[in-house]
């Protein structure tokens, strides 16, 4: 079956949309993003398929949620249309309707029976800026190599406040979640890191945790942690 043909009998078209979430829109949650996107779809008057049942909703499958505060430059979602509209037309109409900070870059039809978006994309790529702690690019590169050489990388993740107000931690080995780490440059007092981290149902890699682990490798004060972590998700694959 060729990409873009209708889903079993019913005339539906599955369109994969690549978009970015930047600027102040970074600070809205995934659920708020979904609401904003679906309202834009309605304003754009796109013939999106509706689910059946008690509360009909547009048939849109979203990719891995971005953490609140993180920009994403190459995010994905799949939307199902009742009839074929050219991808350029969809992108144009969406971009006119979307709030500033959400931009569609590309759209293409994919096979309606293919794997889900979440299962096709299992890696996030990130650019992360943290304070370099006075270390050189060479030292950062060595630290990254040492990090990748380790069998286990333990971090403590908060599990939310318990009933008594104390925050309980859980020790997690994040080594399987780290696929690639590189130090790209040191500019001023900041180092620019490139990371490829896992996005799977079993675990999601977090750039700020990896940055903190690198600080530990460099013997920098682990208590203070790297100041001013700012991360951008470059893409998903």
């Amino acid at each position: 079956m060729t990409a873009g043909s209708p889903v079993h009998g019913s005339p539906r078209w599955r369109l994969r949309v690549c978009f970015s979430k930047t600027g102040r829109l970074r600070f809205i949650s995934h659920l708020d993003f979904i609401r904003a996107f679906e309202r834009a779809v309605r304003r754009a008057g796109l013939p999106v398929s509706m689910s059946e049942g008690f509360s009909p909703a547009p048939r849109i499958a979203y990719g891995w949620p971005l953490p609140v505060g993180m920009a994403g430059l190459g995010e994905y979602l799949d939307m199902e249309l009742e009839r074929r509209v050219s991808p350029e037309e969809v992108a144009r109409r969406l971009n006119r309707a979307l709030p500033e900070g959400l931009t569609v870059h590309d759209a293409r039809y994919v096979t309606p029976h293919g794997p889900s978006l979440m299962s096709e994309l299992d890696t996030g790529t990130y650019l992360v800026r943290v304070s370099a702690g006075g270390r050189s690019l060479g030292e950062w590169r060595e630290a990254a190599a040492r990090l990748l050489g380790r069998d286990r990388l333990e971090v403590t993740r908060e599990r939310g406040a318990a009933g008594d107000g104390t925050v309980k931690g859980k020790v997690v080995d994040v080594r399987p979640l780290v696929r690639r780490v590189e130090a790209r440059e040191v500019a001023g007092d900041e180092v620019v890191l490139y990371m490829e981290l896992a996005l799977t149902g079993h675990g999601v890699g977090r750039p700020e945790e990896v940055a903190a682990l690198l600080w530990r490798e460099l013997g920098l004060d682990p208590g203070a942690g790297p100041r001013r972590v700012s991360a951008v998700r470059l893409g998903l694959r």
Binding site: R26, M70, A71, L127, R184, V192, S230, V232
Partner: peptide
């Protein structure tokens, strides 16, 4: 080699509140 362009920086000069506060 990837380098951060200014447009990739998540800074937003229009924000009335410092970013670290929003975080």
């Amino acid at each position: 080699m990837t380098s951060l362009r200014d447009s990739d920086r998540p800074a937003d000069p229009g924000l009335p509140v410092p970013e670290e506060v929003l975080r």
